[in-house]
Each structure stands twice: as structure tokens, then as C-alpha cells.
Simulated assay, not measured.
Amino acid sequence: MTEPDLMGALTGDAEVTALFTDAAWLDRITRVEAALSLAAGDAGVVPAELARQAADVVLGFRPDMAGLRDGMAQDGLPIPEYTRQLKAAADPALRPALHVGATSQDILDTALMLALAGLNDRFDAAVTALDSALADLSERLGQQPLMGRTRMQAALPIRAADRLAAWRAPLPRHRERLAQLRPRLERVQYGGPVGLRGGPDGRAEGDAIADALADRLGLHRAPDQWHSARDGIAEYAGWLSLVTGSTGKIGQDLALMAQAGEVALSGGGTSSAMPHKQNPVGAETLVTLARDNAGQVALMHQAMLHEQERSGAAWVLEWLALPRMLSATARSLDLCQQLIVRIQRMGEAG
């Protein structure tokens, strides 16, 4: 277990953090390798019984974690050492059904997609819940008068419902975008050493394994590998930033409304030096997370620049930026909903 992160209590998300622990990665790697053995049997590349026995060995295998960490430092990946240990522990007769035709990137990218598929279910539900919370707030306080402001200056009177409608407007579009991009994102990765799925002579077998692997893991089939074509992940990063941009806009408006005395929230932050203050900590955090995600998108676009058939540098850059974006998005959606339900008044105090 990792130690609690004091600063992460403000900007982090425990569920996302848990998805990227050694234990969580190992669990997904195990699922992928076991499914790959079974997929090879489904495709007729190895006998079905041999595939079943190999999958059982994978599911029961417990690697030496110290060896994996040493291998990671040497190879830049955990999979070479993992497969070395796995094959050494298995009956030699089962080795043809282990890690069949795969490269390290096939295993890790597919393992990542397993994590994202579950997380995207959560994101979809969270956007829906935020939209509902805003609808409830509009029903409760929407008729309260507000001063409309353009370029941060008083303009003309509006209702609270008018501002809330602007906050809600992108949310259905975010759900629609996510539904559209998920089949492009949550795809199996299977290409082999240089992306040929077994080459001209073995391509049909490789395609059959890839399809069976996707089906067994509940991922979308991929007509080809995407080792160096990272547009799906880059598109997804853009979606994450769009979501936090929307929650960040809500946070910024709430912070400005708090400054003008136009909103009252329960449970504001306190000051160590000025006890009379109630700081809009949650609203400020939404702004921070939105800006951070906007910066991370640039890194994810940099990570599209893979050299030739595979890049170590660009791929590892994804590992740094994407978990951070996922955590920021999860935290923003939860925090934004919490803030909305805590609003007790909109408009000037009567």
C-alpha cells in the first residue's frame, strides 16, 4: 500500500491512484496474459486444452516484484522480466501458449484500456450526476435575481437559472463525445514485435487472436495495431480537459460570486490568520485542476510523436501525463457536484 498523500487530499483521487499501483498493474497484466493464452486457443493457434492450462498457470503466477522492478529499470518495461519469470515457472510444454505473438506494448496498452474502460463508466455517471445536481439547484434557486456580468463588469440583470443553464450546457455534449470516442479508445492492442501481427504468412492467425483477445476482455476489436498511432489516446486527453474546463468555469464563477457576496456555500475553508474568512477552496481547486489538465494536453499531443514503429520516449511520456489527467478529472467531477449541493443562496443577501 502507498502512504496517504496529504496534498492529494485536495487535488487527487484515491480510486484513480489505486488504478496505477504496482498491484493494480500486475492484476491487469495477469488478466491480459491469461486472456491471450485463451485467445490463442480460440483462434486455433494452439490446442484449446493447452491454452486453458497455460491460462491457469498465468492466473496462479506470482512474480518476484523485486525482480520486476530491476527489470523495469533495465528494460524500461516490466513485461520482459515478467515473461521470463512466467515461462521459467511454467511447464516447458505450456510455453507455446504463453505470451503468444505479443510484444510488451501489446500487454501494457491493453492493460491500460481495461483501466480506462471502467473509469469511463464512472466519468459518464459523474457527468450525469453533476447535470442533475445543477438541474435541482436551478429548480430550487433559479428564480433568484443576479447581476449579469460581461468582461467582469456589471451588465444587465439575469436570473440564477440563466447562469446555471450556461454551466449545464456542455455536460450533455461531454457525454455524447465520450460515447463516440470510447470505441476508438477502448481497443485491444495486439501487433507483435513490429506491428505485423505475425507478418504476411501469419496475419490471419494474428487477426484472429486479436479479435478473440478483445472479446474475452470486453474491449473493442481493432482492425490493426496502434503502437505508434496514438490519436485515440490524444483525443481522449482532449476530452478530459474539456470536462475539467467546464468544471473549472463553474469554479471560477463561484469564486467570483463569493467575492461579490452573490453566493453562500456551506462549509467554506478557513484562514489561520483571519478567522472571519470563508475561503472558496473547492471553487479555487476546480480552477487549478482545469488549468493543470489544459497544460497536460500539450504533453499528450507531444506523446503522439512516436519514432518509426515504436517509441520509448513518447510512450513513457503518456505514462506521466495521462494518470495525472485522469485523477484531475475524477476529482473535479466529484468536487464540483459537492459544491453545487452545498449552495444555500444565489444572488445578493436579502
Rank of each mutant, 00 (worst) to 15 (best):
L141C: 08
P96G: 13
Q105K: 08
L171H: 04
L86I: 14
L178G: 04
L86F: 10
A115W: 05
L98E: 07
L178Q: 10
Q153I: 09
L185H: 12
Q144H: 13
L137F: 11
L108F: 03
P80D: 13
V127E: 00
L171W: 03
P157K: 04
D136Y: 06
I79D: 00
P96D: 12
E81R: 13
P78Y: 06
P157H: 05
L119G: 00
H174F: 12
G191K: 01
A133I: 04
R149F: 09
R187Y: 12
A154Q: 13
T83N: 12
P145K: 09
L164R: 00
Q143C: 05
R163H: 05
L86E: 04
L185D: 11
P157C: 01
H99E: 13
A88W: 07
P193G: 11
L146T: 05
L98T: 09
L77K: 10
A165M: 03
Q105S: 08
M147H: 08
L130V: 03
G195I: 11
P193F: 06
D131Q: 12
P96C: 12
W167P: 00
D91W: 09
G191W: 01
I107H: 01
A166G: 06
P80M: 12
P80G: 13
E81L: 13
R95A: 15
A154T: 11
S104K: 03
M152D: 09
E81Q: 14
A165D: 02
F123A: 00
D136P: 03
H174S: 01
A165N: 01
P193N: 11
P172L: 04
W167N: 00
V194Y: 11
D131N: 11
R149M: 09
L146N: 03
L146D: 04
D136F: 05
A90S: 15
L114G: 00
A111S: 13
L86M: 12
D75M: 10
R184E: 14
A88V: 08
L77Y: 10
D121T: 12
L146G: 02
A89G: 14
A111V: 05
L146E: 06
V100K: 00
L94M: 13
D162N: 09
L171M: 04
D91M: 10
P172G: 02
R187P: 01
A126V: 01
T103G: 09
A115S: 14
P145E: 14
E186C: 14
D109A: 08
H174W: 11
L119F: 14
A126C: 01
W167L: 01
R163S: 03
P92A: 12
Q153P: 05
P193D: 08
I107N: 02
R84Y: 09
L114T: 02
L137G: 01
D124A: 08
D162E: 11
A115D: 03
L134Q: 00
D91A: 14
P80I: 08
T110D: 06
L108W: 00
G76C: 12
G192P: 04
Q105W: 02
Q180V: 12
L94H: 08
